[in-house]
Amino acid sequence: MEKKLVLESIFAPSEDVVAREIQGEFLIIPITSGIAESDEEIFTLNETARVVWNNLDGKRTLRALIDKLSVEFDSPAAEIENEVCGFTEELLKRKMLIEVKRG
């Protein structure tokens, strides 16, 4: 069952994936099974996702992250919230992220 995201929660990259930057491409490489659908599959992140990923550091709440990015990108918090939550949900579904603290 899908849990609803709570903005006071804190997330961090799972130890079951490795993030690497190769030639300007940001890659997420699964270490364990159950993340990719085949052993030939790896993942790339787009620009927005890369910024969010780098800020999902196991210390900041989602809300703090949204506020930070909203200032950095000079965009309304609601817009950033949409992007951050969309990406976080996608990562959680893929088991690439763990919830360090539930808010």
């Binding site: 190769i22 030639q23 659908e37 030939e40 790896i42 996702a49």
Partner: peptide, 24 residues
């Protein structure tokens, strides 16, 4: 919007670029 793009290795376009640039 898709944040995460899945790739299978044969379609990974970096291979050739990396070889050309003397990367491992």
């Amino acid at each position: 919007m898709k944040f995460l793009k899945s790739l299978t290795l044969p379609e990974f376009s970096l291979w050739n670029k990396m070889r050309e640039q003397a990367k491992i």
